[in-house]
Amino acid sequence: MKRMAAIVRVVELRKSFGPLEVLRGITFDVREGSVLTIIGASGSGKSTLLRCLNYLEQPTSGEVYLDGKPIGFRIEADGRRAPDTAANISRMRAELGMVFQQFNLWPHMTVLENVIEAPIRVKRLARKEAVDLGRRFLSKVNLLDKENEYPARLSGGQQQRVAIARALAMQPKVMLFDEATSALDPELTGEVLEVMRALAKEGTTMLVVTHEMGFAREVSDRAIFLHNGQIEEDGPPARVFSAPTSERCRQFLSKVLH
């Protein structure tokens, strides 16, 4: 099931906000079907990294490839880099599903409408087809019975599961999770982690920014520790979590693991 091909490739990615350099040259690959967790203190650039991958933030320099295709730029016939068209960028984004810390469900649409909006508008599916698809993914996150509710009537954990279904409904090649459980009460994180665990088991390629160290250790194939916009530690979770070589990573882990 797990192939060796790198589905996401990040090369020397840099991102500055004004004078502040948040990412300082990040390079890594993600194999198809694998789970990569990205850990680090707040302000280390984890969220910015994910947002650069689907071009919600425009990288200052460096390259991101999805399945071999560059995101946000194209190579002209003369070999020069040119910014890609908005339409192409949208198309590439659709192949990367993203789950946000704050869920970001659309409050004026029902649960089902949230899930089928993009399949209808972006993929141009017929409504009936989209509804079937939407229900399939809602049942995957165990929320089929809530399809006609509005988001405000759901708990945080339920909202986040809808957000996962919404991202999955576009059948993306890669799922990005940006602190998907950080805004949830502790008793609600379990139901979201359970869904994420199931996705990992099915072989979904996932990039997960998280503070749930136990989950990261158990589910991921590889973990990256970011510090000051650089990769400080990179390896299999057993090593990164138990025997990190970087002093900063050790300090960070001792703080979050008590």
Partner: peptide, 22 residues
């Protein structure tokens, strides 16, 4: 909230679609 637009962008919607629908 900025997240409302981000969510639209992330699923591949265009700015016009986001404006109209969200």
């Amino acid at each position: 909230s900025k997240g409302q637009r981000d969510a639209g962008l992330a699923v591949g919607m265009t700015n016009l679609q986001i404006m109209r629908r969200i």
